[in-house]
């Protein structure tokens, strides 16, 4: 190791450090503006690429409804189904006339006929 610094030299060096600290270079407004612009840009970039909330999962019913054509189509389908059930239960007279003319049978459910066909007593007696 070399010789220690004398007190006088130490004081001189401290005075030099003091002078250089006082002459410290400060950032210009332009540099500060550039740094801040970078900071804002990074914040904006992160906001832009932040992951969006995951889309809710679609259920099988929703998929089916969409496949049919959405709620309006589903409403039409339901109406048609109800109409079909009603017609089956209580057919209009004109419909019955048509089936009688074409098939020589009533469209409606003939309780008397069914009863005679399914008359178990007669079946057993015949058997």
């Amino acid at each position: 190791m070399t010789a220690e610094i004398s007190k006088d030299m130490e004081r001189e060096l401290d005075a030099c450090f003091e002078a250089l600290r006082a002459a410290r270079e400060e950032p210009s407004p332009e540099l500060l503006a550039r740094v801040l612009a970078d900071g804002y840009a990074e914040q904006d970039a992160r906001t832009a690429v932040a992951p969006a909330a995951p889309a809710p999962r679609r259920g099988w019913l929703r998929n089916l409804i969409d496949m049919i054509g959405g709620w309006p189509a589903l409403a039409g389908l339901a109406t048609a189904t109800l109409a079909g059930v009603w017609i089956g239960y209580n057919p209009p007279a004109a419909f019955d006339s048509l089936t009688l003319a074409l098939l020589n049978e009533s469209y409606g459910y003939d309780v008397g006929l069914s009863a005679s066909i399914l008359d178990l007593d007669e079946v057993q007696a015949d058997g």
Binding site: C16, F17, E18, A19, A22, A23
Partner: peptide, 13 residues
Amino acid sequence: ERMHADGRARALH
């Protein structure tokens, strides 16, 4: 050139 005219500061720099 931008530094303070202080001779000490310049010398140390």
